[in-house]
């Protein structure tokens, strides 16, 4: 059985004269945690933007479940099951916590105009199920009591968790997290660690992770890709990466 989820080859993104991403290759299998590391400005976020359809890559192929997706618009890619968070949290700040989760379930709810107008049985059932799913996730990330709070008023760590839960409401198979531990305290980082592993083991999804917290990355990653100035530098298991002289020189050496 082929268990390849995502295959990226030759991915290149040029902004005018700047080659932000140069010939990057990636491979994600089912139920894997894959990390992408590299110094600031290495082009990691740009890779995410190319994969999720926010940028049109200059060159390269993105194959998701055997199907090329690099020309598709962002919302179509997301519907196929590749969903991302953002380096700077992008919640719907004025909406409540639970509304944030309901918006993400848009496709799974009853969007028929007449059904909603007359509150038909199927409409109410779909809404109730949506709220139920949201409640389950709020329980899981410890935000149940804040369900009717404005999302923008949550603490930073809570907002980060809510953003992950919001992605999960779309029922993805590949979750892409852009620096999810940035700004978290050590206890929150440990919780995040636990959550990511749980997503892989219990929700059976794969995670593509951009992160600077080396303890987190080395602890949970199945494989790691290192990029430096847009170019792929190395890839392998955490052990291999930690002992790779190029990586140590270019990146880990800073620590």
């Amino acid at each position: 059985m082929d268990n390849k989820l995502l295959e990226v080859s030759g991915l290149t993104m040029r902004f005018g004269g700047l080659l932000a991403v140069n010939n990057v290759a990636l491979e994600v299998n089912d139920q894997e945690i894959i990390s992408v590391i590299g110094p600031n400005g290495a082009g990691k976020t740009t890779v995410f933007n190319c994969l999720t359809g926010f940028y049109q890559p200059t060159a390269g192929q993105v194959i998701y479940r055997g199907e090329p997706v690099q020309q598709l618009p962002g919302h179509v890619i997301s519907r196929k099951g590749m969903v991302r968070t953002f380096q700077h949290v992008r919640l719907f700040k004025e909406m409540t916590v639970v509304e944030n989760l309901l918006v993400a379930q848009h496709r799974h709810l009853n969007t028929s105009f007449l059904a909603g107008l007359f509150k038909t049985k199927s409409f109410k059932k779909a809404e109730a199920e949506g709220i139920e799913r949201a409640a389950n996730w709020l329980d899981r990330i410890g935000l149940a009591e804040f369900a009717n709070r404005q999302a923008g008023n949550l603490a930073y760590g809570q907002q980060r968790r809510l953003e992950i839960a919001r992605c999960m409401m779309t029922q993805p198979s590949l979750l892409m997290l852009d620096e999810p531990a940035a700004g978290l305290n050590p206890a929150e980082t440990d919780e995040l660690d636990e959550l990511i592993v749980e997503l892989r083991d219990q929700h059976k999804i794969s995670i593509l992770l951009i992160e600077h917290d080396m303890k987190l990355v080395m602890g949970i990653s199945d494989r790691i890709y290192v990029v430096n100035q847009g170019c792929p530098l190395a890839n392998g298991t955490p052990k291999e990466i930690q002992s790779n002289p190029d990586v140590i020189k270019a990146y880990l050496g800073e620590f």
């Binding site: 999720t52 919302h75 997301s78 953002f86 918006v103 993400a104």
Partner: peptide, 15 residues
């Protein structure tokens, strides 16, 4: 309302 607040986030969620 979600769209008014953040179009990019909406797209990333498949809307």
């Amino acid at each position: 309302e979600a769209l008014r607040e953040d179009e990019i986030a909406c797209r990333s969620l498949g809307l």
